[in-house]
Amino acid sequence: MNITIHEALRAYIDPLTEHEYAALERSILTEGCRDALVCWGDVLIDGHNRYAICQKHQIPFKVVQNDNFSNIEDVQLWMIDNHLARRSVSDFQRGMLALRKKEIITARTKHHDTNAPSVEGEADIAVPVIKPTQSRQEIAREAGISSNAVVQIEKIQRTASPALVQAVRDGTISISAAAAVASLPDEEQQAAVAGGRKELQQAARQVREKIREQKAPTKIAKQVAESEESSDVNNGNAVTSHHYGGDAEVPVLQQKIIALQSENAALLKKIAELQAALEKVHTGSY
Rank of each mutant, 00 (worst) to 15 (best):
L9A: 00
G32K: 07
D35H: 06
D35R: 07
G41T: 08
H48V: 09
A52D: 11
C54M: 03
H57C: 03
Q58D: 08
N66S: 01
S90Y: 04
L99S: 03
K102Q: 15
T114E: 13
V119H: 13
A126H: 05
V129Q: 13
A140Q: 06
R141G: 08
S147Y: 10
V150G: 06
I153G: 01
I156L: 04
R158N: 05
Q166Y: 12
R169K: 09
R169G: 11
I175F: 02
S176G: 03
L184S: 06
Q189N: 01
R197V: 00
A203P: 14
R205S: 01
Q206T: 12
I211K: 06
R212L: 14
K215R: 08
T218Y: 15
K222H: 06
Q223R: 13
Q223G: 04
A225M: 08
N237C: 13
A238L: 15
A238Y: 08
S241A: 15
A248E: 15
V252N: 02
Q255R: 15
I257W: 13
Q261W: 05
N264Y: 14
L267E: 11
K269A: 14
A272K: 07
E273V: 11
L274H: 06
Q275W: 05
A276I: 06
A276G: 01
A277F: 02
K280L: 05
